[in-house]
Design a protein around this nucleic acid. Sequence first.
RNA 1: GGGGGUUUAGCUCAGCUGGGAGAGCAUCUGCCUUACAAGCAGGAGGUCAUAGGUUCGAGCCCUAUAACCCCCACCA
Length: 858
Amino acid sequence: MEKTYNPSEFETSIYNNWLGKKYFSAKIDKSKKPFTIIMPPPNITSKLHMGHAFQQTIQDIIIRRKRMQGYSALWVPGTDHAALATEYMLCKQLENEGTSKEELGRAEFKKRIDQWYKDYKGTIIEQFKRMGYSCDWDRLSFTMDEGNCNAVRKVFVHLYKKGWIYKGKRIVNWCPKCRSSISDAEVEFKDVPSHLWHIRYQIEGTDKYIEVATTRPETILGDTAVAVNPNDDRYKDVVGKNVVLPLVNKLIPIVADEYVEMDFGTGVVKITPAHDPNDFEVGLRHNLEVVKVIGDDGVMNELAEDYAGLTREEARERIVADLKTAGNLVKIEDYSHNVGHCERCKTVIEPLISSQWFVKMEELAKPAIEVVENGKVRFMDEQYKKTYLNWMKNIKDWCISRQIWSGHDIPIFTCDDCGEVIVEETDPAECPKCHSHNLSQELDKLDTWFSSALWPISTLGYPNDTEELKYFYPTNVMVTAREIINLWVARMIFSGLEYVGEIPFRDIVINGIVKDANGKKMSKTLGNGTDPIEMIDKYGVDALRFSVFDGVAIQSDSRFSEKKVELTRNFINKIWNASRYVLMQVENVEIKDIQSVNLTYADKWILSELNKTIDSVNNKFEKYDIGMAASELKDFFWDKFCDWYIELSKCDIAENKEGTCATLVYVLTQILKMLHPFIPFVTEKIYLELPVHDESIMISAWPEKLDINFDGEVVESVREVIGAIRNIRAEKKVPDNKKINAQVLVKKDCLLDCLKYISKLALINEIPVVDNEESFESNSVKLTFNDIIINLPLDSMVDSGAEKERIEKEIARLKSEIERSERLLSNAGFVAKAPESLINAEKEKLEKHKALLAELTK
RNA sequence: GGGGGUUUAGCUCAGCUGGGAGAGCAUCUGCCUUACAAGCAGGAGGUCAUAGGUUCGAGCCCUAUAACCCCCACCA
């Protein structure tokens, strides 16, 4: 092995080797248990960012461990067509080319979209490979490929025939300039200074008025009611009466609705169902008429009568003036509020009523609520169970149509001649009723989530009844983001239940986000993102992978800093060098089975620590606590294995070469295996250099505990002694290049074998053993432990003045300890109510401290 | 507006069903000890956000307050 860790030399070739050997492909193997993860598909147009590096690596870590544990581990990769986002990007490009989708026409536009998909397909996937992801690439799926189209078609027809798809009205964000509806995500809210116009409406048959406050006086022409809060005492007596709509002179009712806030404005809201989403909802509840007065072009239409032909802005001006003239304008207040703007052309959004397709949710939601309530599907973080149930229980019908040109088609055909509607799994050639060939397909496209909802089943072959579905489904865990719990996770759950009769996954892990070093969300617009590829080039993939997990609770947000990657690279360098050391020691040594060799105290100690670590890491993995598992592995490797065991083993290796070499190789192998899911490349590189190894670490067996109860106690005492001597040395300012003298009195024979450890690690010349304390040199520091007393003569150390001070400090410490214990033990409440084990432990401590104090003060 | 989260050392974060405050980094000190200076050893550093409460005992449980953050819905 090279002297320095240089990841760029081997990462690519190792990955290609894995690919060539087909290690990632999961087979249907009845002798194995399946373990399945379906990757949340990134947008096809995306580039690798820190969020992927975090979220996808979680899955890779889980799947790699399961594979090593002997499961048939399948991780299905894929990408999403993200129709809206992609169409938006392509339209921008067309704009640069001086054309537009309208100019191209639908057919040509579709070609461009398909080409766009092809052009992009590579990038993110290649980057995922660079990350080392062990997905089954042969099963790579795309939400617009043939299988997915079939699934979408089948499901749509199924829902339609059940009567769960219907056409309804809905308010959409309409951009009058783009002449298109746009998604919520494309609406930019900006605070705009404006006014609140207070307008009075006369109550029918009286000379009383009711005063409303509005930011949009021009929509008064479309008002079909005014609303007040049912609990508002000011207006209780007028609910149910009519008011005269100013300018229009039409009678409209006063309705009571919870939506109205009593404290805002006058507590009275004019209701314009055609031009405001909330008003539309109010309208539905009270059966109000819908009057659309603004057209698709943002111009007042014929229903606006006198104002027809004016733009929204012109109409507002005229109407305000006319209201003033009519004496209906009470006052104008300054008011600034959030107004939606089109992200593209910055035009003010006009909420418009339009016809859309909906899926009825009531029946679909029921079983989806049940499986989460009864724990069949588990949110690993309980708080998200609430988010989910809250949404599911108040679910509204799902609007699935989008006014865009790309994405999945809506398979609804209408006969131009007789009006017959045809919804079948294959495109109809003629009208079944009148045999006309003039059929038109619905032009709207499906919401992207419609196909995403089928992802866990479509990737496994649905709508066909495949062997994959039988074997790998339901999948085991879904790792995804907080903000799409309802948009996506929820829809996958009811889809799985409805279409294949089984939950899509058992566990749901909602990962946190990776923020920048200052705790800000990484974003393109802020430009505070870090490019993972840059980190990989600089420090290697393994360093990047490990650094985003070390010490991180994956469900909560974490911070990324390059410094962390650098420190992780240092850790990996440590692994590299420790491995080099082991390989140097075991060169030309036959490595025997760990259970058949002679083991020293140090060997037994590290093996017992390894056992503990295996247990603990497994527990953390089962809870998906992989960040904590990473830290634990790092601590074990660096602190226990390198800083203690390797150093201790240097004392043993000459006399017990066989046993110590076996232990070095055994422990290194096991820890490399446990580290492999996190840092796959370097562990493979080292593993293949080991004297005993399988074909690849990634298909080797996950560590099992040794079935032996090793006693690590002796070495624990030794570590305590060494620590104490190192303290004394530091206090006495003895530099590390100077060895000191010591004498020792040992009360337990086994410790005699461990004196070499103490002398080496505490930098002592030699340690003569004495029979009694009288033989100790007097001008010295005496360290007293349960089974061993060390005497350090001061003449081998430079300074002697600090010693008195040290003893005084120690006496003071012991006295305060004794006082604490005595106080606790004389507390009647404690003795009566605390658990017995705790009381006994406290008594033991008290005795121990008293003995030590007596020793120091005699 | 609704829901959720966070607050522990200078920084980033652990801290299990309540039982003596932890790690890493940074900082300071000493070491190039034949695996590693991308390293080794040691030290200093904390009213556990604030105020109450429950308890023999609270970082942990309860109540209120403050600051910051996230998600959803967006206010005539």
